[in-house]
Write a protein that binds this DNA or RNA. Structure first.
Length: 359
DNA sequence: TAACCGTGGCC
DNA sequence: TGGCCAAGGTT
């Protein structure tokens, strides 16, 4: 685009944004720490999902020190249900680094921001523009979708290096005097008008600048390579009760899927294929046999790259059994203090509904 | 580079 | 109904 076209493009974009842009909780603050929290929560997560988590989180951890000093379990509990839990652990780690290294203040330059755990290229640029009003384009999925349509760019946005191409392009476009509004405008446009499956071009303030609209190929863009089909894994979820009706629960490892979250013990049915093997395992490991509840309970849980097929089994385990590390007995009330992934919250809900203590 | 890492909402 | 998608970072 020529300079004058850029001026018109930005005028049309920002005029729309100031009239129709979303009023969001994290746009009311100038506290870089709060903006940081919002940016992490918004990674791969929709605005409406984030809002209640954000409000609750900043209330519970109002300052960097409050978050830095909190037990990780409390942070995960506040994140419970939001998904991608390593974001919470990395956010706390990053905040601790900020408190220790930068005197509790978020750095004002991009390379220092990038040095903090959990801050990548997008979040660093978002913070530079939104918290410090520096002209850094924040290259996210919305921006790439909108600009790929405007400029008919057919590079695969799933590839890392494509991001750099958009970075250069957006650097030439960004409104120097109002970079935060520029970035937020493209995000709002991408979320509200120029959506992946629905491009509502009649409502678009910049359709007159859009080459995809001109050619009627909006939905062909952006080009994005497909994801692999998720693997399927089968487990028995073991509801193990002691004489007092407490439940055996355990904390998952500190890395990998659902790191640091709690769960009921699981038995891999892909590993232990037949009934005999499964009973041998539960006797050896939990000193009891396990069987399906009277009304069998099986369900499916989808992750981004995995599918769990789960089926509930119940057993009576002696409370004096030697527990492994990261395992403990808990009453229903005590259970609720632990962060559980949704896949296991489904079991907790089942217990409350079916009351297996009476069996 | 590409796989890993969650969840809920939408059509 | 289920496949697709969302303000990405880490390894």
């Amino acid at each position: 685009m020529k300079e004058q076209q850029i001026q018109q493009f930005n005028h049309d974009l920002l005029d729309w944004f100031h009239r129709k842009g979303r009023r969001l909780p994290w746009r009311k603050t100038d506290n870089p720490y709060y903006i940081w929290i919002s940016e992490v929560m918004l990674q791969q997560t929709q605005v409406n999902t984030v809002i209640p988590y954000y409000n609750q989180f900043i209330k519970k951890f109002p300052t960097p020190e409050a978050l830095a000093d909190a037990p990780e379990q409390e942070v995960l509990k506040s994140w419970e249900g939001l998904g991608y839990y390593s974001r919470a652990r990395n956010l706390q780690k990053g905040v601790r680094e900020m408190v220790a290294t930068y005197n509790s203040e978020l750095p004002k330059n991009k390379s220092d921001l990038l040095s903090l755990t959990g801050i990548g290229p997008y979040t660093a640029s978002a913070l530079m523009s939104m918290a410090y009003h520096e002209p850094e384009p924040a290259i996210d999925g919305n921006l790439m979708r909108v600009l790929s349509r405007i400029f008919l760019i057919d590079d695969d946005i799933a590839k890392q290096k494509t991001r750099k191409k958009f970075e250069k392009l957006a650097s030439d476009l960004i409104v120097q005097t109002e970079p935060a509004s520029f970035n937020q405008a493209l995000m709002d446009l991408g979320a509200m008008v120029c959506r992946p499956k629905i491009a509502d071009c009649s409502q678009c303030p910049i359709s007159s600048h859009c080459r995809a609209y001109e050619e009627g190929v909006q939905l062909e863009y952006p080009v994005k390579s497909g994801k692999a089909k998720p693997r399927m894994l089968h487990y028995a979820v073991l509801l193990l009760l002691d004489e007092q009706g407490r439940f055996l629960v355990e904390q998952r490892p500190d890395s990998g899927l659902l790191a640091g979250m709690w769960q009921f013990p699981m038995l891999s049915l892909d590993e232990y294929e037949d009934e005999q093997q499964q009973q041998a395992y539960s006797r050896e490991r939990f000193q009891c046999s396990v069987e399906p509840p009277e009304a069998a309970f099986s369900y499916t849980h989808h992750f981004s790259h995995l599918i769990w097929k789960l089926t509930l089994r119940i057993g009576r385990t002696p409370s004096q059994m030697k527990l492994r590390k990261r395992q403990c007995w808990a009453t229903m009330n005590e259970l609720k203090r632990f962060p559980f992934p949704v896949s296991h919250q489904k079991v907790i809900r089942w217990i409350e509904k079916n009351r297996p203590l009476h069996t």
